[in-house]
Design a protein around this nucleic acid. Structure first.
Length: 908
DNA sequence: GCAAGGTC
């Protein structure tokens, strides 16, 4: 009987070769079908067997919706959450499924050599499905390196594939697909074509021959990518070179938080408020050195205090050496290089974007110059051949002599690092010259070599000397460095420590201050996020994987949400900012990194066998479905931002008042719904639908720093009231919504669109414009409060903060203001009237009079009611919320009536 | 035309 056949499948062709080479000891027959198949004879479970080792190329299948859901127009994105999903072959042209099926014929056993992570476990089941193998004839080989030792060990310890881990990946695929596609289709259908300024992204240049040629080249190179990523609508290179690209509105649980990081930094920069600070800089001249000493207090933000210390130091005049310390410090050599760190260095030091860096690294890998470039591990496997890898670099013209030194004097064992069990750190495999590789690939290869050599080099050692001084009760210091051994910094010179000499001091020595400077500086905002910082943030928050991080960054660039500028800093575009501001205004979760961690945490329950796959998927999908429905319901909030930013309205708006967040002027948009738009913060603030809006002196809201406005209703009897644009849309006090009952909610459901809290409803206890400060007494007509109209002079009047009731006071008075005093009779606010000298009704010709407009006979006689039945003194009732009591968690004049309607004038 | 994850 012929020996049984064993089919072995690896995740990629290179692993298949390595495994086959180890097991066959190099004696194998290789044929090429869809992927290579290596055949040889060997021993399996102690008996002779015929082996076939082949591979897939990553995932065999990927998930999608069935054909009936493919038509955007005919599908409600909400239905996608409940839709069945199908698995299609990832790369139909490669015929991997057919290949596996054919190779499996006649085989007795299947051994799976997929990468040892969740994705690998999932691919195991894709292979089982493709081959049609029975699970009892299927074995899983688990290995962390493709060395002889590891491969043999894995073969001796075959186990079974982990279905839970595979199901976790299935769950992730379904969730990502449904959430991403539903939001992307909905947003794109809603916004695409809606605003002219948004859809015509225009790239234009002077029509020179060079530009035409350049554009043609760009066109040819990018056409495929552009066609995939966006709709190319027109390309003209006649009189003006214009490339029109339809804006795209994709959403994804990885790409959107990635964009979120960039916009977050942009907002930090734009809302940054610089502060002045002061620092003391004493100088000494000693043994020929002029040294500026560092103050222990660092910076102070109060000039007076800083000047006080300056005086103390100046008066003393002599620094006493109080402490001299000398310590040997170590700067450790690097750990092994993983993908994320390679990408960070490529971006920050070599100027390659992550996408390009990976392309170069992949080419170096397939050409055999470096090891596998997608790895999370920074620890080398114990069996790693350091001597062999180093020896391969011994002839390099650039670092050959350094390497020879290491080989001769003994290289160091690398620092431990972390072993994730995927692939070893990225290392050079063989020596190559710049001429062979070309400039870009050489730069990356050079770094990989330097980093590897660095990991087996000695640490850098240096002496750190610190001298501390005391003067006028204040402490200062200076530090010096002296390198003892360069160590690895000899091969990685950009990490070198520079010598810094300081003179020799002796304790107790007194040195005169040669110059004393009170340095005045200003705090500055951070700069835009660098690509390298973004990669760190993504890694920290678990957004994407080593292989997909470059893809997500590339996506947000290609879709014009961010642009890469000088020093590879990522500057969000108006489109990118508006998208994120939109999510923030509706559901901030949508653009926060937690959304990814939430999904990860849920599917980990499946991977660990702690929860059922179906239940978890259902639960998570339902949660996202709810978020989606809410998003659809609130899309107008996002639309308001797009409209303000991309429609013609933005240009017509005029500057009105300052935003409290960025202190820049906001634009007033008079078209209904009237609103203010802050272009910097990308925020819309709705205003009352009626009336004229003006700046209210130059007063600001004490709560949010927004400049106040006054809204005046038309006509001589139209009321006027101040408002803060921010508080108006976002009332700051809990429960205030129930008090704003005369106005209706806008379509967004928010207090906003023409309905909100003006200052005359604000319970702020000390703001001079609040209801508490300006309210006088209860309205005789409704449940409102009569509030002093501060701009009504000389036709002094009170306006009800709810209805149209107006009450005129002493006409022609020079000034009328509220006081903190209350009428003992009716609890109304006592007002102070400064009468006009010529017309004062006061007997002795004096002008100042204080009293209650209800109980003071003089003042009450001057009161005239408009839009109301009568206005009389009502004994001890009415007024401003008896005893100033706290009712309904809210303190304010006249507010008592909200609880007890009898408190109003009207009920008498 | 959509997501994110493999790999080339």
């Amino acid at each position: 009987m012929a020996p049984p056949k064993v089919l072995m499948v690896a995740e990629k062709p290179s692993i298949a070769v390595s495994i086959a080479s180890v097991l066959s000891r190099g004696k194998m027959f290789t044929r090429r079908v869809s992927t290579e198949v290596h055949e040889f004879d060997g021993v399996f479970f102690g008996s002779p067997a015929q082996f076939k080792v082949t591979s897939v190329i990553g995932h065999v299948f990927s998930v999608d919706f069935p054909p009936k859901y493919q038509d955007w127009a005919a599908t409600d994105p909400l239905d996608l959450f409940e839709a069945q999903i199908v698995k299609n072959e990832s790369n139909p042209k490669a015929h991997i499924c057919r290949h596996l099926n054919q190779e499996a014929r006649g085989c007795r056993y299947l051994v799976l050599w997929l990468d040892c992570d969740r994705e690998g476990e999932n691919i195991c089941f894709e292979v089982i499905q493709s081959t049609g193998f029975n699970i009892k004839d299927t074995y899983r080989a688990r290995f962390s390196a493709v060395t002889e030792k590891d491969v043999m060990k894995a073969l001796d310890n075959l186990s079974t594939p982990n279905r839970d881990e595979a199901l976790a990946v299935d769950a992730r695929q379904e969730i990502d697909l449904k959430v991403g596609v539903a939001f992307t289709r909905y947003q794109t259908s809603y916004f695409q074509g809606k605003y002219g300024n948004l859809d015509s992204r225009v790239i234009s240049c002077v029509p020179t021959l060079f530009c035409i040629l350049l554009l043609l080249v760009i066109y040819l190179v990018l056409l495929r990518a552009l066609l995939k990523a966006s709709k190319v609508e027109a390309l003209t290179i006649m009189d003006c070179d214009i490339l029109l690209v339809a804006a795209y509105f994709s959403y994804g649980p990885c790409q959107t938080p990635t964009l979120g990081f960039c916009v977050q930094r942009y907002l930090q920069i734009n809302t940054f408020k610089p502060e002045k600070f002061w620092s003391l800089h004493p100088y000494i001249i000693f043994q020929g050195y002029e040294i500026q000493l560092e103050w222990q207090r660092g910076r102070l933000f109060d000039k007076t205090v800083a000047m006080m210390f300056q005086k103390l130091v100046a008066e003393d005049g002599f620094l006493e050496v109080t402490e001299i310390s000398e310590k040997q410090e170590t700067k450790g050599r690097p750990v092994g290089l993983n993908t994320v760190n390679l990408l960070k260095v490529a971006s920050s030091a070599l100027g390659f974007g992550p996408h390009m860096a990976m392309q170069i690294a992949e080419r170096l890998y397939t050409q055999g110059y470096i090891s596998y470039p997608r790895t999370e591990s920074t620890a080398y496997p114990p069996s790693f051949d350091f001597r062999g890898t180093l020896s391969a670099q011994a002839n390099s013209p650039t670092w050959g002599s350094y390497v020879q030194g290491l080989l001769a004097n003994g290289y160091h064992k690398p620092r431990s690092g972390t072993d994730v069990g995927d692939h070893p750190p990225i290392t050079p495999m063989k020596s190559v010259t710049e001429d062979t590789l070309g400039s870009d690939a050489w730069k990356l290869y050079q770094y990989i070599c330097q980093h590897f050599i660095g990991t087996v080099s000695p640490d850098c050692k240096y002496l750190r000397r610190k001298v501390e001084f005391s003067i006028g009760g204040e402490s200062f210091h200076c530090t010096g460095h002296q390198v003892i051994a360069k160590g690895f910094t000899a091969i990685m010179p950009w990490l070198a420590i520079n010598d810094k000499n300081i003179p020799s001091f002796t304790k107790g020595q007194k040195i005169e201050v040669s110059k004393l400077e009170l340095y005045e500086g200003t705090t500055s905002p951070p700069d835009y996020l660098t690509e390298s910082e973004l990669i760190s943030l993504m890694e920290k928050h678990g957004i994407g994987t080593d292989a997909s991080i470059p893809v997500h960054i590339n996506n947000i660039c290609e879709r014009n949400y961010v642009q890469v500028q000088a020093s590879r800093r990522l500057v969000p575009t108006t489109l990118g900012i508006t998208l994120v501001r939109g999510y923030q205004s509706i559901d901030p979760d949508l653009c926060l990194p937690d959304i990814r961690s939430f999904i990860e945490q849920q599917i980990t329950l499946i991977a660990k066998g702690q929860a059922d796959h179906h239940c978890v998927v259902q639960h998570v999908i339902q949660q996202f479905k709810q978020k989606f429905s809410y998003f659809v319901k609130k899309i107008e909030d996002m639309d308001a931002l797009f409209e303000a930013q991309f429609s013609a309205l933005t240009d017509s708006g005029r500057a009105m008042s300052k935003c409290g967040k960025c202190l820049r002027y906001m634009k007033y948009i008079s078209a209904q719904p009237t609103r203010l738009y802050c272009g910097t913060c990308e925020e819309v603030y709705y205003l009352p639908p009626m009336g004229t809006i003006k700046l209210y002196k130059e007063l600001s809201c004490p709560l949010d720093n927004f400049e106040l406005l006054v809204c005046s209703m038309p006509g001589p009897e139209g009321k006027a009231f101040p408002l803060c644009p921010y508080c108006y849309s976002n009332p700051p006090f809990e429960g205030i919504e129930s008090l704003i009952n005369t106005v209706k909610n806008g379509p967004s459901g928010k207090i906003g669109k023409g309905a909100g809290m003006p200052c005359t409803l604000c319970p702020h206890p000390t703001c001079p414009n609040s209801l508490v400060s300006q309210g006088v007494c209860a309205c005789p007509e409704c449940s409102g409060t009569l509030v002093l109209d501060p701009l009504s002079a000389p036709k002094w009047r009170l306006c009800c903060n709810k209805c149209n009731c107006l009450v005129f006071l002493a006409q022609g008075a020079h000034r009328i203001s509220t006081t903190k005093e209350r009428c003992p009779e009716c609890d109304s606010s006592v007002v102070e009237v400064d009468f006009n000298k010529k017309t004062t009704p006061l007997e002795d010709g004096s002008t100042l009079h204080r009293g209650c407009i209800l109980c003071d006979e003089l003042l009450h006689s001057l009161v005239e009611m408009k839009h109301g039945r009568g206005f009389r003194r009502m004994g001890s009732r009415g007024g401003r919320g008896r005893g100033g009591g706290r009712r309904g968690g809210y303190r304010g004049r006249g507010r008592g009536k909200m609880v007890d309607p009898k408190m109003s004038f009207r009920d008498f």
